[in-house]
């Protein structure tokens, strides 16, 4: 099966979120996803990058990948006819993924609160979500969405 990879490197700046969404929707739009699934992939990637910008990198401290520039986000998209895998990597603060509990969304909404919703969206809109941090301090959130058989 033919597999292709696309790499995107952006500064940790909310200004570039639109560009990331454009690239992702363009790619997913060319695959056999439903419009609903394309929207889910788009928002999940947007939320993943937003979390890096908001929480992994801080304005006080500049951190770079080995050989890279300060506060960069690396996005690797791997596609084939069955699924899309999106890896969002940063060199910022570690995220306690294991101990993150998805909020009780009904109670959350009842109180008209929406913060903390980003990871809820990511976990619920994608099929597989995993996080790893390498010893040299690179965080990678991996998002997978399979193409549903018609």
């Amino acid at each position: 099966m033919k597999t292709d990879s696309i790499y995107l490197k952006i500064p940790s700046d909310k200004f570039f979120l639109g560009l990331v969404r454009k690239v992702i929707t363009e790619l997913a739009g060319g695959m056999n996803y439903s419009q609903d699934d394309i929207a889910k992939i788009e928002i999940a990637v947007d939320e993943a990058c937003t979390n890096v910008i908001k929480y992994a990198y801080t304005s006080e401290e500049k951190i770079a990948f080995k050989g890279g520039k300060d506060n960069e986000i690396n996005i690797k998209v791997n596609i084939n006819t069955k699924r899309i895998i999106i890896e969002v990597s940063d060199a910022g603060k570690e995220f306690d993924f294991e101990n993150y509990h998805v909020p009780d969304i009904a109670a959350h909404l009842k109180e008209m609160k929406m913060h903390g919703l980003g990871l809820y969206i990511i976990k619920n809109f994608m099929d597989d979500v995993s996080y790893k941090r390498t010893p040299d301090g690179v965080n990678t959130l991996t998002l997978v969405k399979y193409i549903k058989k018609g």
Partner: peptide
């Protein structure tokens, strides 16, 4: 064309 959790959160806040 697009709304993220930040936008949805703002809408909930305004409604409240």
């Amino acid at each position: 064309e697009y709304i993220s959790s930040a936008g949805l959160g703002a809408m909930m806040g305004f409604a409240k």
